[in-house]
Every structure is written in structure tokens, then in C-alpha cells.
Design a protein around this nucleic acid. Structure first.
Lengths: 184, 184
DNA sequence: GTCTATACACAGATAGAC
DNA sequence: GTCTATCTGTGTATAGAC
């Protein structure tokens, strides 16, 4: 069995870190190559251009959130409160890791005015999140309130991530996640 | 009395629009020159570099928010509810204008991981906003709750601006601002 | 498959003519 | 003061040797 060397999956995993830190425009193909220990030539052998690397990075991140966090909402063996607590804990880790904030929020603010390239991938992420919270809160609130509660919860968390990156206080995010738990 | 041509104030005013649309890194000195109808040469005659233009743009925007919006919080001739409503209306206009979102949130997410250059200017803006809301809510909440209510309000609005830029629905921001009013 | 060299465009910034 | 020309660095992307 030969050693797997540079699989596209590995490259994407490391590219996500670079994109999350530097943003899309600020990240160069050189940065990506260096981070993955490859040359630029080999990078262009695997991916057509930077845009493709970014799209794949966003998709892989969405998939990760879906499997590791949003799926918790549908774990029918646990009470909803417990599911929400588990989601909050994992979200906290994901959004404070490497002080990177939310990859999707970063990308939308950076690119939305310039191009529509990544709207689909970003939208997909927020829909997954919304659906998970709709499922969690749906017995607690009536139809009219439900949508607004979910939107406020996501907005509160995303806004807190912004302020957290300014003030460098992870506690702020803990508080925001607690507010989400108390809503149930 | 000679006609005033290209005052630094006018240049900054137009530069803000460009930075708000393209972001900091994505904006070139050429873009700024074109937007102001100047040549690159004359631009460098007025400002040392791009960083200086950005700092002055952030400072001018903060000053605008302070004079036009945050000052409303301290207008003792009106009941606090009325002050908050006026603030909400002006904030809505400011954050939906040219679909630009919040200049400060955009800048912090774009630059915070790369450099500390603009932290002071951005922090100043959020402090002004926090102080205005502390003043508005201080009789309604006890000391312990007050800080968290203010932080949640700002986070809710900033997070909603992110989602709004994705979904292109200004109504979302209206709802978030109403939530802030209902907290009083 | 992997790497080096390089084409080409454009960025920030400056020099110097007018 | 204003503009043009240009320097220097660096970006994306490709060509082609091994």
C-alpha cells in the first residue's frame, strides 16, 4: 500500500486555514503552496485557479459543520436542551480556533460587494444552520416567532464574533451562546 | 473668493465610498484616484499612502456617526424611547446606503488577522456606540444586565447586517432594529 | 508528477517635466 | 500644484524541462 502523499482533501484542509487567516483576496497562490508544502506548479496541477480552491474550501467547511455540529440538532436520543448545549460547545471551539472567526462571514463581507462568486456556498452554510435551529426551537415558539428567534440567534452569534475579534475576548462568544441556550 | 477644488475632506468623503464597496486590500490607489477625479500623482501629494487614506476615512465615518446618530442618545429634550427610534431610523439608512453594510465590521474582519493597523479607529467607533446605548438603557436594566443587553443589541445588528448582505433583504435589519427598540 | 523559469498584468509609490 | 512616465515588487497563471 503506497503512502498517500498530496491528496486534494489534505490540500483543501490546509488551504482553509490560510484563507481563514488572510481572507480570499489577501491570500496568494504562493501562500497556499507554502502552507501545503507544495510548489505553485503542482498546485495548478490539482486546481484550475484560486477560485476553485476557495469554493472547495468553503464546501468542505460547510460539510464539516453539517456533520459535526448541525447534525446534533437531529439527534433524537437526547433532549433538545442537551442538543443545543452540545452544539454551543462545538460552535465555540470552531469559531475561536486560531482566532479565525467565521469563515463564511469573513468571506461574505470581503467579497459580496465585488463579486457573486461564493454566494451559493455561503448561503448553503447559513441554510443548514437555520434549519438546525428551526428544528430545535420549533416546539417552543409559534410559527410567527420561530423564524425571528432563529434569525436573531444567528445574528447575535455572528455579530458577537465580529466584536470578539476586535476585543479579543472569547468570553463574549460564550455569553452569546448562552443566550441562545436560554431561549429554549 | 476662489472656488475650493480638491479639499482633503472631499477626497476622504469619496474614498469612503470606494473602501466601503471594495474593502481595503481590494481598493487600489488607482480606484481612489478615479473615484475622486484625480490622478495618482495628486493623490500622493495629499496623502502619504493608502493606509493614511483609510485611517482618515474611518475617522471621518466615526465622527459622522457620532454627530448624526450617537448624539441622539443624549438629547435630553426627548423621551428615551423616542431617541432610540430616531437612532434606529438613521442607523438603518446608514447601513443600507449603497448596500455597503458596516464599514467598521467589514474592515475588522478583513484586516484583523493580518495587521493591527486600524484597531484603534474601529474600537473607537464601537465604544461610541456602546456608550450611547448604555446611556439609553441604563434606567431600564440593573448594572449586571445592562452591559450584556448593550452587547447583544450591537451584536444582533452587526450579525444581521452580515446576513442581510447575503440575502439582500433590508427588512431583516428593520426587524433587528425593532428588537433593540423593544428592549427599552 | 514535479519543479523551475518566466510571461504578463497591475499593485504601491516616486521622479521630474510643466 | 498637476500630470505623465516609470521604478520595483508581486500577483495569477503557464510553459516546458526532467
Amino acid at each position: 500500500m503506497p503512502t498517500q502523499k498530496t491528496t486534494p482533501e489534505k490540500i483543501i484542509k490546509q488551504s482553509i486555514q490560510v484563507f481563514r487567516t488572510n481572507g480570499y483576496y489577501r491570500t496568494t497562490m504562493n501562500d497556499l503552496a507554502k502552507a501545503t508544502g507544495l510548489t505553485k506548479g503542482i498546485f495548478y496541477h490539482h486546481f484550475e485557479n484560486k477560485e476553485e480552491v476557495m469554493k472547495k474550501s468553503l464546501q468542505a467547511t460547510s460539510l464539516w459543520f453539517e456533520k459535526k455540529i448541525f447534525s446534533l440538532a437531529y439527534n433524537e436520543t437526547l433532549p433538545k436542551k442537551e442538543r443545543l448545549i452540545q452544539m454551543a460547545e462545538t460552535l465555540f471551539a470552531a469559531f475561536t480556533e486560531n482566532a479565525g472567526g467565521c469563515f463564511f462571514a469573513n468571506t461574505i463581507l470581503e467579497t459580496a460587494h465585488v463579486e457573486d462568486t461564493f454566494l451559493e456556498e455561503i448561503n448553503h452554510f447559513f441554510e443548514l444552520w437555520e434549519n438546525a435551529l428551526l428544528h430545535i426551537y420549533k416546539e417552543k415558539y409559534n410559527e410567527k416567532e420561530l423564524k425571528e428567534v432563529v434569525q436573531q440567534t444567528i445574528a447575535d452569534i455572528e455579530g458577537t464574533i465580529i466584536v470578539m475579534q476586535l476585543k479579543k475576548q472569547p468570553l463574549l462568544l460564550k455569553n452569546a451562546l448562552n443566550r441562545a441556550i436560554e431561549k429554549l
